[in-house]
Amino acid sequence: MQGWPIARRGMVIGLLGGSFDPAHAGHAHITREALKRFGLDQVWWLVSPGNPLKAAGPAPLADRMAQAGRVMQHPRVRITDLEARIGTRFTAATLKGLQARYPGVRFVWLMGADNLAQFHRWDRWDWIMAHVPIGVLARPGSGVRGRMSRAAERFRGSQVTGSAAQMLGRRSAPAWCFVDVPMVDLSSSAIRARGEWRKGGR
């Protein structure tokens, strides 16, 4: 789905960003888990023009959008090219743009524990933590690096317990929650290495 998604004031929207190169069942799985665990009204996939932390460019945006739409079909999930529309490549700038366009909407940034482990490398990461609640999803027993990360240590006092995860989006930032979810053992890089997503056509 391209275009500006519709959101009403007071809605809680989870944001899952990435290159989705390609999107796969693991992305769909954590999206469904996030909807349940964090009490979200919707999840928007932010299919990025490119990841600033990766040297090699991804497949064309239109191809990745189409693939994502085939993989993730859910009435409360929107596949978007919002970063391209806003003209941003960094999460902090994207969030500022979304907050300006959707006043009164509550956004929750979603990430895996592996991203939390290197979150301090992101542009204005501390601003993100201070301005948007963050939901972290981890494979059971695999989140040690994330829990010990620089971001987790700095914002330890703002951590929300798993039992309160349903209200994460209703809390004022900084607020972040770490939940364990059974994971689908897939990765975009492994799929690219096997050449599978090119075989699926466009």
Score class of each variant (00 low, 15 high):
P75N: 06
A117Y: 15
L116Y: 08
G143E: 13
R154E: 11
R194S: 15
I128G: 01
P49V: 04
L15H: 04
G162C: 02
L98F: 09
G157W: 07
R106W: 02
N51T: 02
A165N: 12
G14Y: 03
R101H: 12
T80D: 04
D180G: 06
M167P: 00
F119D: 04
G39N: 10
A165T: 08
W44T: 10
G14P: 02
A84K: 10
Q159V: 05
R101L: 10
S19R: 00
I30V: 15
G39C: 10
W197N: 14
T88W: 08
A25S: 14
R154K: 14
N115S: 15
S163G: 13
Q99F: 11
V105W: 03
A152V: 03
R106E: 00
V144W: 02
A93N: 05
T94M: 09
M167A: 15
A34T: 03
T31N: 06
A151P: 04
R8F: 05
G112A: 08
P58W: 05
A117R: 14
S187P: 08
Q67N: 13
R76V: 01
G69Q: 14
G104R: 00
A113M: 01
T94Y: 13
N51S: 08
V132Y: 08
Q2M: 11
L35S: 00
K36Q: 15
I30D: 09
E196T: 08
H131P: 07
L95Y: 08
Y102Q: 03
G14S: 04
D123F: 14
V136C: 12
L168K: 10
S158E: 07
S158G: 04
M111D: 06
R202K: 10
D63F: 06
R64L: 06
M129I: 04
G39F: 08
V43I: 06
D180K: 04
V12R: 08
L95G: 06
G112D: 07
A151W: 06
A68Y: 09
S48T: 15
R85M: 01
V181K: 03
T94G: 07
G157S: 13
M65T: 03
V43G: 02
V108D: 01
D63A: 13
R150M: 05
V184E: 14
S188K: 01
I86F: 06
G26Q: 06
D180N: 10
I191Y: 04
T88P: 00
A7F: 07
G141D: 10
R202Y: 07
D41T: 02
R198L: 15
G201N: 02
Q166S: 14
G39E: 11
D185F: 12
A173F: 11
G146I: 15
S19W: 02
R198A: 14
I134C: 13
I191W: 04
M129V: 04
V105M: 02
G14W: 03
P60E: 05
W125K: 15
Q118F: 09
K96Q: 14
L15V: 04
V71Q: 09
Q2S: 12
W109F: 15
A193Y: 00
A164V: 12
L116V: 13
L46D: 11
